[in-house]
Each structure stands twice: as C-alpha cells, then as structure tokens.
Design a protein around this nucleic acid. Structure first.
Length: 884
RNA sequence: GGGCGAAUAGCUCAGCGGUAGAGCGCCUGCUUUACACGCAGGAUGUCGGGGGUUCGAACCCCUCUUCGCCCACCA
C-alpha cells in the first residue's frame, strides 16, 4: 500500500466510540502524507506541462530566490500564490509550467562567503579570484539544494526538469548577448560619472540600492571671503567636502547676488580661488541662497559642474578617507575630517553658525554604510529609450498591474528612472564582456573574447574585471530561463509568460527591468499581468528581521502544522498588494479546517457501507440545496481566482465546507444513512459528489490533504492534481430558499432549548406558527436536527416558549417545567427588536422623499417588511399576554 | 515636495450605498454512532474625529488626526 492509512493517534483524542471501521485516524497527520504525495506527483510527471497534452500553455517563472540563504516567510507567501494559480490552471486543463530557479545575488552572496572566509582568517584576496569564485560555487550548490528542499516541503508544483540558475551557461550566454547588443545600439556605455560608492562593499551600486534615511544632522553656515573684499555665506551639511569645492553658485535672478557672479571667492582653509557662477538649480529660499559646488562628491554638483565646465576634485577616496587633494586633512576618515574642518573653520572665524537640521543620508541597503558619491569609471545602461515602450504597454493595459493602484506608481517609477550603473567591483557574477587593448587602450565588446583588438589589431587584450549588477541577469529571467537567445521549443510555447507574482518592494528593482528587457529583446511583454503582494510582518506588524529575531521559518511551521495549514493561513491573511501579519493562531485555524474536512471525508467514506438503499432515488430538498450551494461556491472560487483574490477563494471554500456541508448537509443526511428515513443511496452519491468537488476546489490552496482524501474517494491510482476542475452547474433558488427556512426554524428551536435549559438529550414538542412556514415534508428533518419529538403547525395555548426567526417565522417549544422568566425575557427581547425595526421601517415609509426617490423594488421590500413586522409584533404581544 | 496604504468586536481581519460580519479569545451547556483540532447556544461595536453629498453612508466627496510605506537633484 502506497499510503499509510493509520497515523499516530492524537494525545487529546478521547472518544472511544470513534473507533472507526474504515481505519482512518480521526486526526489528519500531514507527516503521513506530504512527502509521499510530493514524490508521487513528481514520479507521475505531474509537475510538467506535458502532463496536460493539448492544454493551453500557462506559464509562471519563479522570482528566483537568492542563494544567500534559506527561504523566509515572504517567499512562502509569494510562491504559494503562484502555486495556487498554477494548480488552478492545471486543473482547468492548461499545460501549466512553473519554472523554478535561483539567483546568484552578486553582492549579497559574495558578502556571506567573504564573511565565512573572514571567520577562518582568510579573505578573497588571499585566495585569489579563481579560487574564491570556486568557493562561492560550492556555497551556491549547498544553498540551492537547501532551497529546492524547502520548495518540496511547501508542496510547490514546479517543473524540476527546468530548474535554472542565473549563472547557468545558457543564462550567462543570454546576459552576454544582451550586453553586446545594448553596446551595439548605444544603450550601454562606459563613462566617468558620479556614482554611489559603498566604502564597505568596495563597489559602485545603483540608485535604487541606496536607502535614504532622515537623520538628525547639522547645517553649517560658512563664510567664504571674496577676492577684493566682501564675502558670501554658504550653507552645507557636509563641510568636509568644501576642500573639493570648485565654485559657489547662486540663482541667476537672485538680486542679492546679482553683482557677485563672475567674481572669485577664496575657499577658507586652503585659500584656493573659485568662481561664483549662476545656475538655476540653486534654490534662493534655502539657507543663504548661495551653494557651494563640489562636483566630485555630490550628484547635483556634478551636474552643475558639467553645465559650467568646472573641474572636479576628489577629496574623499574609495576607502572613505581624505585623499592627498585634501591637503592637511589627507588620511583622515571622512567623518573625522568633518569635525576637524568645522573646528578649523570656527577657529579661523569662518563659521557663521551651526544649526540642527534633518538630513537625508544615503546608505547602502546591504551593509548600511553611508554611501559616498564618487566619480569613477563605470558602465551604464541608458534606460530612457528602454522605458518608453513599457510606459506604452502599461498605459494601453497590454501589461496589467494588480492591484490597479500600483499602475501609477509603476509609471512614476519608469518616468524617474535615470541611467543605470551596472558594473560592480566584485568577483561573483557575470563578468562584463569588454576587452581593453593594451596597445591602443580601445575597448572591444564581444560575445567571445576577441583574438585581436578591433581597432589596432594588437593581440594583447585585458578583460574588464568587473561583473554586472545581479538585476541585469534577473531582468532577462522570463526568457533566459526558457532558452533565449536560442529559438527553443519552450520559448515558442511558453513565452510570453502569463503572470509575474512578486512583492511590491521589487517592482522597480526587478519587474520594471524585466518589462523593458522583454520588450526590447523579444518584442513582447514578458507577462501580461504583474500581481503584487505585500510584506509578511510579525504579529505586531513589525517587519521581520534578523536583528529583531522575530522572523518565522516556514519549515518550522510546516513541521508543526503541515504545509497545507501554512499555505491556507498565508493566503487568507492577504488582501492584494497589502502587507499582512503572520499569527500562529491563523495557522492553527487552518490546521483545524484541514482536520474538519478530513473528518467530513471520514464520514463520507464510511457512509458508503451504511447506505440502506442500493438504488439511488430522487434527490431530496437537502440534496438539491447542497448542490446549489456547491455551485455557488464553485462560481465564487472561479471568480476570485480569476481576479487574483486568492484569500477570497480560500474563505469561500472554507465557509462552504464548514458552515454548509458539515454543519447542515452532513447532519441533515444522517437519518437517511442510518436507515431511519429512506434515501440513503442518493445521500451517499451526493456526499461523494460534493466531497469530490471540494477536493478539486481546495487543491490549489491545500494540495496535500485534498489529494489524500481524493485518493481514497477515487482510488489510489488517481491524483486530484490531474483531475478536472468542477463545473458550476445551475443554482436551485427554490431549494435554497426552502432549506434556509428550515435552518431558521431549527436554529430557533435550539435557541429556545438552550434558554429553557432543556437537557441536550431530551426531546421537545415544537410548533411552527403557520403551516406554510416549512416546506412540505420538512418536519422530519426539523425533528432530527432540532431533537424535537414532534413538529406541528398552529398556535399553541398555555405556557410555551417562543421565538421569532430572522425570516419572521414564530416558533414555539413546549417545556415541561417552563421557565416563565426566561420565556418572557426572550419574548421581550424579540418584541423590542421587532418594534424598533418596525419603527425604523415606518418612518422611512413616511418619508415622501424615500418613497419618491428610492428604487421601486427597495420601497416594495420595505412595505413588505412593514407588514411582516407588524404581524410579528402583534403576535408577540399576544404571546406575552398568554404568559401572564 | 509629491504619492500610496491602514484606522470596523479584546486580537487578526472581511464587508465598500439599502437591517454591522468571520476566525481566535470570552461566557453557558454537551462523550451528540465524522470531527473535543468538535457540537449547540450566548455576550461584545459612537465602523478614528468633523463636515458634506444622498430618501438612505462603515461604504462616495472634503478635511483633520494617528500609524506605516514609497518616490523626488530635500545644499
């Protein structure tokens, strides 16, 4: 037997009567099923699109997790959403392909490996580049394996035969091809520009990798004397950079400084002469309206410098220490230099004032080091021309962003994009395919190392040592994973992909770049929809982080509750695009739901043996009702999934299973199954039909338990994973209305029993006020569900307890030793609420505006309500009188 | 400087124009031939404040407050 049917009994399990004849434990044990099922799915080839021959392709590429470490709870959400879509489409008959893979994550991975080396007293420099890269590959192998294992544990149905890594030979070829093509088209260039330099990571990073934080700082006002007398006062938060000033700028229209433009100022501390220039960038309102210009250490100043042909002086080096150009300050750390400069300015009388000021400090997102803007020779991608077609795609909705509010954010991100610095001074990554001639110093960019310089023919060429930004290769992921630049079958069949599922936090970093690369190199949007979700926070709403130690390991959750419980909990916690909170309570709730379904399945499977009739008869009211409700549920789940509202889909199945199938249908069907009423065979057929549909509807979200049940329902040779999605048949409004009256009456009787303190096992006499209140033949059902000895119609005399249902039906229960006070309290409560409601309805109907302006059906409904409520109130008054 | 999100029961969240909901927690009962990871019943809300639109607002508009994000050449 493939599957163990008997799991460990639950310690709290204590119902001796539940020794089940069909051998299923009463507590669902995920461990007994999950790994076996996953292996079986894989063995069947169910993860591959080929498992659905003839199906329409449906494709998702996984956002490749970094090989720096293990998956966190955010990955668990991201990938579960993808798996839900993939499994749903597969059940719908699509040839669903989910491409798995991992990202080499340049800086991050290099940093963790370097940290490990450091712990052993080594560094990448002691190893040398080749050996170091070899060690990073070993790390990658280790963590990739761990990640793949986690993917299996979560039940994600990825196609393992298509596992990819951003530095695979094929994907690396794509990277080179794209770089070379960009170069040919003039979209990539090398230049000496001001970049964000991280002194700790020792590499340039892109704008988006810098985090801006507001911090308390100081704004210094410094007096710069003028050549020939006078002075100008500038304001700065970084006085140490004044050593590299090459101008003072004022606004061209600023009357205060109209006469100064063209004159020379004398830089304090060094006495160097710098010109006073006019530039519209200067904000006259800020500070003194005069700006010190340091092209070597400020991006804005660099731009001003270019406009005015100013020289740039680098006074801070790559090590964040002052350079020789800083004269007396050379060798000092940049922050120590700031203090010294301020002290010296003060001593020499140049400091006008220093006032507290909030400054936005840029920090490296990886290591939190304060970024130093520095001029250096780097490679850049010109993004403006790339961005235009993406804007057009978003505006025409050929590229959708869900939820829609992110469309504008996406557009603004595209519009703000500046040239992208793509070279990194690292060893781990795709080495830039640029070769420098040692003879003529010209560069050759080519897919293969050239034998000779393209410019002078010399044969001595050196390859650029830098590697590309990780996002350069991730940007190609939707097509590089499918075989591009080759004309592969997967490209033909599975590209463009369908949906990109990712967190809003990497919309700009990643999604945008994929969009432009896809359009540029394949002529198509790489996906038609970007589905965004938020962050998974801790139960207090804090971001999960290593330093807070509040992170939740998804595998720990799986170990304790099973993958289905985690998946269900994650998915029900999210509204599209919003952050969500992780709580163990939610996971427990999901676990209980799985167990509830498991036990419903035990009931259905066991019911088969007990059916009294061999031939199915006509469906009864409850059969028609549950089918109708099932169809409503299927419709709703389909609608929700199509709209990417996955939490809604989960809730819908949950509520149907628990509140309708279990609470009412299974209970309603018991008399037939136990032979007290005929019709058992039809009940069994309906039970099985509904359970089968539940398994299929739930499978995308809870793949394991749905298959565990399915296999017992349909036979072990089968798997729900490759079953067909249930069809939403026609609704039966009559059955729904009739059965809901039955539920109303049963609930009313139960309420009265509880209020009257009737012993649970005792049978009561019940009366329903008018004979039309219950559907024909429903008395037996009500008797069973409400534990009544009889259910009649009429107006009983004497001391009966009564209650009014939401639908206005009055229900009476006879009690042997009536608790008159309790009965009176109930009546008064019902009377009070009915009278209040009647008053509201009356005043509404008395309002000529309402009657005149509201929709006619609304008015008609209110009139009907008025009549019903009036009758109810009158009836209750009579009841109260009878009670005395 | 611009933009976005959140604010509903003790907690986590649905609801987004027509009588305030769920789960958890809480209270009362209960071995009830699927399930005590359960069943039945119950209590609990100035739907952040203030204006407006509407016959009617938790829901639409304006405004304010609090919390959290993102973007921007924010000396």
């Amino acid at each position: 037997m493939l599957f163990a049917r008997v799991g460990a009994s639950h310690p709290r399990y204590q119902n001796p009567r539940a020794e089940v004849p069909w051998m299923l434990p009463s507590v669902y044990d995920p461990k007994a099923w999950e790994s076996t099922l996953y292996q079986d799915w894989e063995a069947r080839g169910a993860f591959r699109p080929e498992a659905r021959p003839g199906g329409r392709p449906f494709t998702i590429v996984i956002p490749p997790p970094n090989v720096t470490g293990r998956l966190h709870i955010g990955h668990a959400l991201d990938n579960t959403l993808q798996d839900v879509l993939i499994r749903w489409r597969r059940l719908k008959g699509d040839a669903a392909l989910w491409v798995p893979g991992t990202d080499h994550a340049g800086i991050a991975t290099q940093a963790v490996v370097e940290r490990r080396l450091q712990a052993r007293g080594q560094s990448r420099h002691t190893l040398g580049r080749a050996e170091f890269v070899k060690q990073v590959w070993a790390w990658k192998d280790e963590y990739e394996a761990a990640i793949c294992d986690q993917i299996r544990r979560l039940g994600w149905s990825v196609d393992w035969s298509r596992l990819r890594f951003t530095m695979d030979p094929g994907l690396s070829r794509a990277v080179t091809a794209v770089f070379v093509e960009y170069y040919r088209q003039g979209l990539v260039y090398r230049g000496e520009r001001i970049v964000n330099w991280c002194p700790s990571c020792q590499t340039a990073i892109s704008d988006i990798e810098v985090e801006h934080e507001e911090e308390p700082g100081t704004l210094y006002h410094v007096r710069y004397p003028l050549q020939g007398g006078g002075e100008v006062v500038i304001a700065t938060v970084r006085p140490e950079t004044m050593l590299g000033d090459t101008a003072v700028a004022v606004h061209p229209d600023d009357p205060r400084y109209a006469g100064l433009v063209g004159k020379m100022a004398l830089l304090p501390l060094t006495g160097r002469e710098i010109p006073i220039i006019a530039d519209a960038h200067v904000e006259p309102e800020f500070g003194t309206g005069a700006l010190k210009v340091t092209p070597g250490h400020d991006a804005d100043d660099f731009a001003i410098g270019q406009r005015h042909n100013l020289p740039a002086i680098t006074v801070i080096g790559f090590d964040a220490k002052m350079t020789e150009a800083a004269g007396a300050y050379a060798g000092l750390d940049r922050f120590a230099a700031r203090e010294r400069v301020v002290a010296d300015l003060q001593a020499q009388g140049h400091l006008v004032k220093a006032e507290p000021y909030t400054v936005a400090v840029g920090r490296c997102e990886r290591c939190n080091t304060v970024i130093e803007p520095l001029i250096s020779l780097q490679w850049f991608v010109r993004v403006r021309p790339l961005v235009e077609p993406v804007l057009a795609a978003v505006r025409s909705s050929s590229l959708r962003v869900v939820p829609e509010r992110f469309v504008r954010i996406f557009e603004q991100g595209l519009e703000n994009e500046h040239d992208w610095c793509v070279s990194r001074q690292l060893w781990w990554g795709h080495q830039i395919p640029a070769y420098y001639c040692e003879a003529c110093h010209e560069v050759t960019v080519a897919e293969e190392p050239p034998a000779a310089c393209a410019h002078c023919g010399a044969t001595s060429l050196l390859r650029d040592p830098d590697v590309l930004d990780t996002w350069f290769s991730s940007a190609l992921w939707p097509f590089s994973t499918l075989g591009w630049p080759d004309q592969s079958e997967d490209m033909a069949r599975h590209y463009p992909t369908d949906v990109l599922v990712t967190g809003y936090d990497i919309l700009f970093k990643w999604a945008m770049k994929m969009a432009w690369s896809g359009i540029r190199f394949t002529g198509k949007n790489p996906f038609h929809t970007i589905l965004l979700h938020g962050l998974v926070r801790d139960h207090q709403g804090r971001k999960m982080s290593k330093s807070l130690g509040n992170g939740v390991d998804p595998i720990e959750v799986v170990d304790r509750y099973g993958a289905d419980a985690l998946r269900f909990a994650l998915v029900t916690g999210v509204a599209p695009g919003n952050d969500s909170r992780f709580t163990w309570e939610r996971v427990e709730g999901a676990q209980r739901f799985g167990n509830k379904l498991w036990n419903a399945a035990r009931f259905v499977l066991g019911a088969e043996d007990e059916a009294s009739q061999p031939q199915p008869g006509d469906p009864t009211l409850e059969d028609r009702w549950i089918r109708s409700r099932l169809h409503a549920c299927i419709e709703d789940v389909d609608r929700a999934l199509a709209a990417f509202e996955i939490g809604d889909a989960a809730r819908s199945v949950h509520d149907f299973v628990w509140s309708e199938f279990c609470d009412w249908y299974i209970e309603a069907v018991k008399p037939r199954l136990y032979g007290r009423i005929p019709g058992g065979a039809e009940a069994v057929a309906t039970l099985r039909e509904v359970l089968s549909a539940i398994c299929r509807m739930l499978h995308p979200i809870m793949p394991f338990i749905s298959d565990a049940i399915w296999r017992q329902l349909a036979g072990e040779g089968s798997t729900v994973m490759l079953a067909d999605w249930p069809a939403a048949g026609a609704r039966d409004p009559g059955a729904e209305a009739d059965f809901s009256r039955i539920m109303d009456v049963v609930s009313a009787i139960r309420t009265l029993r509880a209020e009257q303190g009737v012993a649970p096992a005792a049978r009561v006499r019940a009366v329903v006020e008018n004979s039309g209140a219950l559907p024909e033949g429903a008395e037996g059902l009500v008797r069973e569900l409400a534990r009544a000895e009889s259910v009649e119609s009429g107006h009983p005399q004497g001391a009966w307890a009564s209650a009014v249902t939401g639908s206005g039906i009055t229900v009476y229960v006879a009690v042997s030793a009536a608790d008159a006070d309790a009965a009176r309290r109930r009546l008064e409560k019902d009377l009070q609420s009915a009278a209040a409601e009647l008053e509201r309805v009356r005043s509404r109907l008395d309002n000529a505006n309402f009657v005149g302006k509201a929709a006619p059906e609304v008015v008609a409904r209110e009139r009907q309500r008025q009549d019903d409520l009036a009758a109810t109130v009158a009836g209750l008054r009579i009841q109260l009188e009878r009670l005395g």
